[in-house]
Computed example of a mutant assay.
Amino acid sequence: MINYVRNELSLNTPIIIISSAGNEENLLSAFELGANDFISKPFSPTELLVRLARELNKT
């Protein structure tokens, strides 16, 4: 899906991956595909809001 958003739609929409599979392989794969950030579950809503705000302030 990241590849589709980045390459097919050519969107620069911030993409934050939220996953319970936060191992190094998945993390690196997400960033290689073009994700902006990665949050491992469980996470706090405050953490998500801070990361969203950071990404939105970059644009």
Rank of each mutant, 00 (worst) to 15 (best):
L11T: 01
L33I: 00
L28A: 07
P14N: 11
N36H: 07
L33M: 01
S29G: 02
E55F: 01
E55S: 05
K58F: 11
K41E: 11
G22T: 06
K41Y: 06
T59H: 10
L27G: 00
L49F: 07
A35M: 04
S10N: 13
I2L: 14
S19N: 03
G22I: 03
L11N: 05
T59G: 09
S10Q: 14
R54K: 10
F31Y: 15
N7G: 10
S10A: 12
I17T: 05
N3I: 07
N26K: 04
A35I: 00
I17A: 02
P45F: 11
M1N: 11
R54W: 06
I2Y: 13
L48A: 09
S40L: 06
D37E: 15
V50K: 13
L52A: 11
E55K: 04
A21G: 04
E8Q: 09
A30L: 10
F31P: 03
K41M: 12
Y4L: 15
E47F: 02
L11W: 11
S20H: 13
A30T: 04
I18H: 01
Y4W: 15
R51L: 05
F31G: 04
G34N: 13
P42A: 14
E25I: 02
I17C: 06
S20D: 14
I16P: 00
S19P: 03
L56E: 15
L52S: 04
F31R: 10
R54C: 06
F31I: 06
E25D: 04
K58M: 15
E24W: 02
N57T: 04
L27S: 00
F38I: 12
L28N: 08
Y4G: 10
N23H: 03
I16G: 03
Y4Q: 14
I16V: 14
S10H: 09
I18Y: 03
N36R: 04
L56K: 12
T46W: 05
F38A: 02
Y4N: 14
F31V: 02
E47M: 11
A21R: 15
S19Y: 07
S20P: 05
L27P: 00
L27Y: 09
T46E: 12
D37Y: 08
R6K: 10
S19I: 05
R51H: 07
I39Q: 03
G34W: 02
P45E: 15
P45W: 15
I18G: 01
R51N: 06
N12T: 12
E47N: 08
P45S: 11
S19L: 09
A53E: 15
G22D: 01
I18K: 00
T46A: 01
R54I: 06
A30E: 12
N12R: 12
F38T: 00
E47C: 01
E25L: 07
L52T: 10
L52V: 15
N57F: 05
N7Q: 14
P42M: 13
G34E: 15
K41Q: 08
N12V: 08
T13R: 02
T59Q: 13
S20Y: 08
V50L: 13
T46I: 03
E25Q: 08
E47H: 05
M1G: 13
K58L: 15
R54Q: 10
I17L: 12
S40E: 12
R54P: 01
K58G: 06
I18N: 01
P14W: 05
N3V: 05
S29H: 07
F43M: 11
P45A: 11
N57K: 13
L48K: 11
P14E: 13
F38P: 01
N36S: 04
I39E: 03
L52H: 03
